[in-house]
Design a protein around this nucleic acid. Structure first.
Length: 115
RNA sequence: UGAGUAUGCUGGGUAAUCGCGGAUAUAAAUGCCGAAAGGCUGUAUCUGAGGAAAGUCCGAGCUCCAUAGGGCAGGGUGCUGGGUAACUCCCAGUGGAGGAGACUCCAAGGAAAGUGCCACAGAGAUAUACCGCCGAUGGCCGUUUUACGGCACAGGCAAGGGUGGAAAGGCGAGGUAAGAGCUCACCAGCAGCCAGGUGACUGGCUGGCUAGGUAAACCCCACCUGGAGCAAGACCGAAUAGAGGGGCAAUGGAACGGCCCGUUCCGCUCCCGGGUAAGGUCGCUUGAGGUGACGAGAGAUCGUCAUCCUAGAUAAAUGAUUGCCACCCCGUAAGGGGAACAGAACUCGGCUUACAGGCACACUCAUGUG
């Protein structure tokens, strides 16, 4: 899990990101993204809807997403709000594939430099 | 040994690295963010999901609405006794149903208060006569004429057939023209009395002879029952503008689960200086609490003493990776694979549903051996 200051928490932050943010997606994830120069770091949130599965399944996916983000957050550019939304296909996907999927989205938007 | 019945428990262990929530301690700055409330960092130690955390189906605590009030309506429960804070739960019994048995299951008050319904079939479903039986009595006819035979007209019957889940207790004997509780024995059912039991009820005796089912159909009877819920609710709190307390008067409106009562508010006036949204803090975990011993009880459960403190998040922490041991599967082996149902959200007591494995104890039936 990330520390609190790297998490997106308030309603207005969510609202702003959903309404004004850019969107990119692949088959497992959707990413909402907006730049905010008022903050020093980037803030992130993960949404896993009820369509994905029962509580145990959803928790598991959230935790994997957080873990993947945590490992790669050094490379992510600052001053952004990010929201990752899990899509139905993500069920049963391994840690490695989720990591690939997330990195692909971050590359696409230029938030991290391609290795 | 096999098949089964019932009860209780368990729901991998251990170690390492990286990471997160909470508590405590400590350090750094008269620091940073914010209007304020409040929050932010490092280190150390401790601690961090379940038996169902689930479904949200019952019952409570707690909070606010009036102190939760009265009547009606509505809703719930429904054999007996006990347990409990309470229950629709639990325990022990009674009655009924099922099973060879251990044992299991039951929404188990009232159908002679009333009403409704009982499809199809069938003549008829609280009511009948289709087939049928009889035709003693009365009628008609015949003859060998105070009697007998015939007809099946009046009429009698409900035994048999047939229909049905169910056809006016069952079965046998007597009885009769044929029949019928018409009479009798036994059985079932009903009422009364006696005995036993706290009671549901059980046993016996006597009597009159018969009363269909259905109340998770309306209904009757007895008992219980106010509403909303932690997004309850309390507090802190910019902008903007409102709200709280006391007194007064009259009729309308609104609110308090539906209606009636009842209560409160809306009006005027005086006083006070405070209140709302986003946001934040509290509520928030010490409780009908766990564990052990002893005692009471048939049991549910209760009492006494000792001891322990065991998640409190809020776009919501318990994750990722790996080693060893244990378990299951595949394989001669090296080795490979697997591990259920499922994630706290105010807290308890239950119920229900889901569930890979494993353990303990009691009992029943069958078979074998001694």
């Amino acid at each position: 899990m990330l520390k609190r200051r790297f998490r997106l928490k308030n309603k207005h932050e969510f609202k702003k990101t959903y309404q004004n943010g850019k969107t990119v997606a692949n088959s497992y994830l959707v990413l909402y993204l907006i730049e905010n120069k008022e903050i020093d770091d980037s803030k992130v949130a993960f949404a896993v809807g009820k369509r994905i599965g029962k509580a145990v399944v959803r928790n598991k996916i959230k935790r994997i997403l957080r873990e993947v983000y945590r490992k790669n957050m050094q490379a992510v550019k600052k001053n952004h709000y990010l929201i990752f939304i899990a899509r139905a296909k993500i069920k049963g996907i391994s840690y490695v594939n989720i990591e690939k999927s997330m990195l692909a989205l971050l590359n696409k938007t230029g938030l991290i430099s391609r290795k």
